[in-house]
Amino acid sequence: EKADSGKPTVVDADQMAYDDVKQINTFTGAVIVTRGTLLMKAARVVVTQDAAGYQFATLYAAPGSLASFRQKRDGGPDLWIEGEAERIEYDGKTELVKLFSKAKMRRLDGTKPTDEVEGEFISYDSRSEFFSVNNTATGPDSKAGAGRIKAVIQPRTPGAAK
């Protein structure tokens, strides 16, 4: 949600290695990244910062598992968005979340998924709450024959939107 923008980014982990020359923090071991309602989990997280103090985090899943992401959505008391992928890139400046390979993302109303997408690459803009799905992790556009995208959009029950 928008209020997350002004919140600090907090990282909890088992270990941390800091490269003072490149000014890169690498957190390892059950890493949890939070920023307001944004919650991300992974086995290894690399955090860098730009001169203006914006953070950029790349989350790597442990082999065989997935890094996860969850954030509250504006527009309702209990609206959420969740996702997981083998690698997640979070840009603290644009607040874009990019999910790479085996990417899944779903919107939830409380705990009930309202729609869900799968693909090789999902990009989610947490400010506009708009996401796009592609079948290739390498580019902004899909490539012919590169893989399937699956989207499940739940029917709006009449009168539920009020």
Binding site: K7, T9, V11, M16, F27, Q49, Q55
Partner: peptide, 8 residues
């Protein structure tokens, strides 16, 4: 480890 990166 507990790290806090302030908002820009």
């Amino acid at each position: 480890v507990h790290g806090v990166f302030p908002p820009s």
